[in-house]
Amino acid sequence: MHFIFEQNQYISYTLAANTASSTPRELGFTFPAEWAPHRATWLTFPHNDASWQGDKLAKMRPQYLAFIKAISEGENVGIIANDEALKQFIIGELTKTGVDLAKIEFIVKPTNDAWCRDHGPSFVVNPKTGEKMIVDWGHNAWGGKYPPYDDDNRTPRAVAEYLNLPVVNPGIIMEGGSVEFNGAGSLLTSKSCLLNPNRNPHLNQGQIEQILCDYYGIEQVLWVEDGIVGDDTDGHIDDTTRFVNEDTIVACVETDRNDENFAVLNTNLQMLKEMRLLNGKQPNIIELPMPKAVIIDDFRTPGSYANFLICNAGVIVPVFNNPHDQIAIDILEKAFNGRKIIPLLATEIIWGQGSFHCLSQQEPLV
Rank of each mutant, 00 (worst) to 15 (best):
C213E: 10
D297S: 09
V319P: 01
D247N: 12
Y64I: 06
I172R: 10
W223Q: 05
G78P: 05
L27T: 04
Y10H: 10
I327S: 09
L57I: 01
V366S: 06
G98R: 08
D55T: 15
I208N: 01
D234T: 04
D55H: 13
V250K: 03
N204F: 10
I107W: 08
H236N: 06
H139C: 14
M133G: 09
A160H: 02
N169T: 15
Q270H: 13
I316K: 14
A85S: 13
D232I: 12
P318F: 02
V125I: 15
L265K: 13
M60C: 02
E287C: 11
D239I: 04
N200M: 08
D83F: 14
V319K: 02
D150P: 03
I68H: 10
L288M: 12
I327A: 11
L57H: 01
D259P: 14
L15S: 06
D118P: 12
V319S: 00
E254W: 09
K59V: 12
W223A: 00
N307F: 01
H38G: 00
I71R: 07
P291H: 01
L65N: 06
F31R: 15
G177L: 11
F3C: 07
R39H: 14
I134G: 00
N312T: 02
H47S: 08
A313P: 12
I80Q: 00
H2T: 15
I79W: 00
N266E: 08
H202E: 15
D231L: 03
L188W: 04
K145T: 00
L277A: 00
S186A: 10
I329S: 03
A50T: 06
E209D: 11
D297H: 11
Y216S: 02
D150N: 11
A33W: 10
R199E: 00
N153R: 13
R339P: 03
G120W: 14
L57A: 05
Q353L: 13
W52N: 00
I71T: 12
G183S: 04
P127Q: 05
I295L: 01
